[in-house]
Amino acid sequence: MFRHIGKGRTFFHNLRLASLLSVVAGMVNITGVLAFQTLTTNLTGHFAFFAEELFLRSYTTALVYLLYVLCFLFGAFLSGLLMEKTSQFNPHAGYVAPVSLEIILLVSVGLLGSMKIGGTLLSSTSLACMLLLAMGLQNALVTKVSQSVVRTTHLTGLFTDLGIELSRLVLGSDIAGIKQKQLYKSIQLKLAIISCFFVGGILGGFCHRHIALSTLFIPAGLLLFTLWYDQILFRYYRIMRSIRKR
């Protein structure tokens, strides 16, 4: 899912990766909204609120929205940095560090959200910043691994690209053979991301009603599965090869 890079990646590698991590993003986003009234998978709204608070001269609140933006940016920066450094030693394991850090952040928010530190609950702003950092990590990771084919943490660009591609499909008389197949695959990929993000949001909302911030353990578990997936598949193929040789 992650190990294949560059020309080694296929449509199905990207489809599996996009579907799973879109569920993760959907669950994290709805959990952030319900628990902290904060969007954690995109920055457009935060920029709008930042401008509004500046206009209203509410500078403290404006700084909070600026902090959200910087946390997402730092997550993307850290993800790229970790992947570059790790890839120098093992090109096929560059994803391990950012995914592991994202898991740690999600589990930490799930634990700290209901834990009193120094007699008081950790502030919702701090926890929201941790979620934004996690989503910045994920978005940069998926973008880099898929060579900008997959983005899982915001839908605005996806709906824009989908609208353009659907218009090409409707007027597709000038699209031949291979290009038409590529167009179908691109539309299918975007629909999968949108659908899985929606499913993650519904599932996350339902779980939050019953287990609150412990909901974040579910996307953390899904990310843990992505770390194991390639190793499990690789071992399966090795076992099958050894059986065939006998």
Rank of each mutant, 00 (worst) to 15 (best):
S19T: 14
K7H: 12
F49E: 12
M1Q: 08
L101F: 10
I218K: 00
T10E: 10
K116F: 06
F50Q: 08
Q37T: 11
L34V: 14
L131Q: 07
F72C: 03
G172E: 00
T160F: 03
F225C: 08
T40C: 07
K85F: 08
C129Y: 11
I5E: 13
Q138A: 04
V150R: 00
E84D: 15
G26H: 01
H92A: 13
F49I: 13
D230N: 14
L191H: 06
L63E: 11
R151V: 12
S79G: 10
T44P: 00
K179T: 05
R244V: 14
I194Y: 07
V107D: 06
T160S: 09
V145I: 15
V150H: 03
R235L: 15
M130H: 06
S124F: 14
G157A: 02
C71E: 11
G80C: 11
S167W: 02
V69P: 04
L105E: 01
I243P: 00
M240P: 04
V33M: 12
H208Y: 15
I211W: 09
A62I: 00
N29E: 05
F225M: 08
F77M: 12
L141Q: 10
L169G: 01
V109R: 04
V33Y: 02
E53V: 03
P219S: 09
I193T: 09
L21A: 04
R151I: 01
V99Q: 04
T40D: 05
I194R: 05
L233V: 15
L20D: 00
A93Y: 11
I218P: 01
L73K: 03
F77V: 15
L189F: 01
V33W: 04
F72M: 01
I187M: 07
S186R: 08
L189P: 05
A192D: 03
W228P: 02
S146N: 03
S123G: 08
T38S: 07
E165N: 07
I117N: 09
L66Y: 02
T156F: 08
L121C: 10
L111S: 10
P91H: 06
F234Y: 14
P219H: 10
V64W: 06
F72P: 04
L39V: 10
V33N: 04
Y237M: 10
V96F: 11
Q147E: 15
L15W: 09
C129Q: 15
G80D: 04
L141A: 10
L112T: 00
A134P: 14
Q147H: 14
L166S: 01
F77I: 15
F74V: 12
V199A: 14
I202K: 14
S87R: 07
L222H: 11
Q88F: 05
L70N: 12
F234K: 15
T40K: 02
K245C: 01
K179R: 08
A62Y: 09
Y237F: 14
G6Q: 06
L155T: 02
L20M: 13
